[in-house]
Amino acid sequence: MEKEFYLGIDVGSVSTNLVLLNSQRELVYRDYLRTMGQPIRVVQEGLKALKGRMGEINIAGAGTTGSGRKLAGIMIGADVVKNEITTHAVAALDTNPAVSTILEIGGQDSKIIILRDGIVSDFAMNTVCAAGTGSFLDRQAERLQIPIEEFGDLALKSKNEVRVAGRCAVFAESDMIHKQQLGHRIEDIVYGLCQALVRNYLNNLGKGKAIKPTVLFQGGVAANRGIREAFRRELGMEIEVPPHYDVMGSIGVALIAKETAKRMGRTGFRGLDISKCQFGVRPIECKGCANMCEIIEIVKDGTGIACWGDRCGKWSNRIGK
């Protein structure tokens, strides 16, 4: 019997991640692509690269997650389309069944997930404020002309604490400039920024939540050792970073797809060759009422395969769900 693989795709606002798990739930392939506002193209390119590397393989289940999950799900014929909270929790539990808290910080948003006895008991998401996300660090690193990859290691060299205001990204920036002008050392300021992000994150998302060990830190920002250290000190507990911390969403949805496909006894995956299909979107402005919904029709090789964006269901119900 040929080997079976399970595909997970996380289409986020900044990056798109593809992972492939084998039937032992081990990661055998991972790819990171920039979404650059073109989810259709990036998914197709990702699948093409996957085929290039792995050849003709048997994909027995596929799933999508992230803010572009619906679109990607329709494109590839996903067995499961899941929100980021659930997929992150599933992946974390698979890594360490004892996990009680998941800290997740990505480029554009951040979440906290509280688990008790292996199930999600509470969560919070931050999407309106940038001060608790990776883009905050990105922006300040740019300002200080430090490559973001070196940011964390530099922070660890800090010997004196410099407090940078963290409630708002704009205030943080002016506060930081002020501290620079006073002559504080760069590594102290950099660590101050890490602390500011952590404080902001815990104030916004951790509000009223009991953060207990085991704590898993995932998402792209988990690569930053300065942030890890700031979390460790602020929470007074060890922070664990899973090996594939930056693709946990894709891993989670691949795991769920495996379960779903097993239960259904088949997969709806359209095959790796969909990278050759012509996908497009047809925007329609509905003039049926004053809502003027902006409808999007997803077209595969000239025929509509899905429709959404309407409030009343007039369009989305036309193509079978």
Binding site: S67, K82, N83, E84, I85, T86, I119, V120, S121, D122, F123, M125, T127
Partner: peptide, 17 residues
């Protein structure tokens, strides 16, 4: 989209529970 993600996650949470 943001509300949908939260509602879905909340439903997943209580279903699992």
């Amino acid at each position: 989209a943001g509300y949908m993600t939260r509602l879905e996650a909340f439903v997943d949470l209580i279903r699992r529970k």
